[in-house]
Simulated scan of single mutants.
Amino acid sequence: MTAKRFQDLQVYQLSERLADDIWKIVDEWDLFDKETVGKQIVRSADSIGANIAEGSGRGSFQDNKRFIKIARGSLNETQHWLRRAYMRNLLSSEQISSIQIILNELASKLNYYLNSIGNIPKTNDQ
């Protein structure tokens, strides 16, 4: 069985959606907000997908799992920056609600993907 290209993984596509949605929001902020919280949140959100991609290209299940764990850390960091942005009135309740839906699904899919790496389906012969 061949591995999927990382671009075809739902978890990767969801990470792209999150990063792109955050980018569009931050792009509208004032310069000070972009230079402080904005850069941090964009980098952490972009890091989720980057780590999924890097892990899939490492060639071993252990390396892939390590990068998915790093992606989960980046997801947590993104949540931190979202909380800071909301508390500083940079995000509306509607924006947070929309992003939260993606965050919840992405967290679930990252955990599922992590647990599935290296699990080979059993056949009737085993």
Rank of each mutant, 00 (worst) to 15 (best):
T2V: 13
K4R: 14
K4Y: 13
R5C: 05
D8A: 10
L9A: 04
L9H: 07
Q10G: 06
Y12V: 09
Q13H: 04
R17M: 08
R17G: 03
D20N: 13
D21I: 00
D21S: 14
I22D: 00
I22C: 02
I22Q: 04
W23M: 13
W23T: 12
W23H: 14
V26K: 01
V26H: 01
D27K: 12
D27N: 10
L31R: 11
F32Q: 06
F32E: 08
K34W: 05
E35S: 05
T36S: 09
V37N: 02
G38T: 02
G38Q: 02
Q40N: 07
Q40T: 00
I41T: 02
I41V: 11
S44G: 09
I48N: 03
G49W: 06
A53R: 14
A53E: 05
A53S: 12
E54F: 06
E54P: 11
E54I: 05
E54H: 06
G55F: 10
G55M: 12
S56N: 13
S56D: 11
G57D: 05
G57W: 09
G57S: 06
G59D: 06
S60F: 00
Q62I: 10
D63F: 00
D63H: 08
N64G: 08
N64H: 11
K65C: 03
K65R: 15
R66K: 14
R66M: 09
R66F: 05
F67Q: 04
F67T: 01
I68T: 02
K69Q: 11
I70V: 14
I70M: 10
A71Q: 03
A71T: 03
R72C: 12
S74M: 09
N76D: 12
N76K: 13
N76G: 08
E77R: 07
Q79Y: 03
Q79S: 08
W81G: 03
W81I: 13
W81F: 15
L82N: 01
R84W: 11
A85H: 06
Y86M: 03
Y86G: 00
Y86V: 01
M87W: 05
M87L: 15
R88Y: 09
L90V: 01
L90R: 02
S92T: 15
S92E: 07
I96S: 08
S98F: 07
I99N: 04
I99T: 07
I99D: 02
I99E: 03
I99Q: 10
Q100R: 11
I101H: 05
I102L: 10
N104Q: 09
E105K: 15
E105D: 15
L106C: 04
A107K: 10
S108F: 11
K109C: 00
L110W: 08
N111A: 09
N111C: 09
Y112I: 14
Y113W: 13
Y113E: 08
N115L: 14
N115S: 11
N115M: 09
N115C: 04
N115P: 00
S116M: 13
S116G: 01
S116Y: 07
I117S: 08
G118T: 06
I120E: 14
P121Q: 08
P121L: 04
T123P: 01
N124I: 10
D125L: 15
